[in-house]
């Protein structure tokens, strides 16, 4: 096998993985944007209102660094947070660490702060 076909195959495989992940993030109900970052803050995939938004990515990396060690009195030093959300009146950012990647989803909220009701689904597949 020559090198170029190996790299082409690797590229096609990785491209497929990222597209699959992109689809998964896009299927989250009420999401209006998403980012997937590496642990050092590089943008892996993005979409919606957060597409290629490196400013938000950098701010979120800063937030994660700050929240690393909040209060040694209340939280043991080995006790880390695994989910963070930043909530505004009508939308929120949900940030979580999974599979060594930082997932950020921007979601819409209704006026009472709860997620908007899902569209009615037919009970029986037509």
């Amino acid at each position: 096998m020559n090198h170029s076909s190996h790299w082409t195959r690797s590229y096609i495989f990785l491209n497929g993985v990222y597209k699959w992940k992109m689809l998964l993030m896009e299927r989250i109900p009420d999401q209006i944007g998403y980012l997937v970052l590496t642990e050092d803050g590089a943008v892996l995939t993005s979409g919606g209102e957060l597409e290629n938004d490196e400013r938000i990515a950098n701010l979120i990396m800063g937030l994660i660094t700050l929240t690393d060690n909040i209060d040694s009195n209340a939280f043991a030093t080995n006790e880390k947070f695994d989910k963070m959300s930043v909530t505004y009146d009508d939308h929120c950012y949900i940030i979580s660490l999974s599979n060594k990647k930082i997932h950020v989803v921007k979601k819409k909220l209704t006026s009472d702060g709860s997620p908007p009701p899902a569209a009615p689904q037919p009970l029986v597949d037509e």
Partner: peptide
């Protein structure tokens, strides 16, 4: 100003 909410299995901040 937003509300920042952090959580793990046992604690919330």
């Amino acid at each position: 100003s937003p509300i920042i909410y952090l959580q793990n299995d046992t604690r919330q901040c």
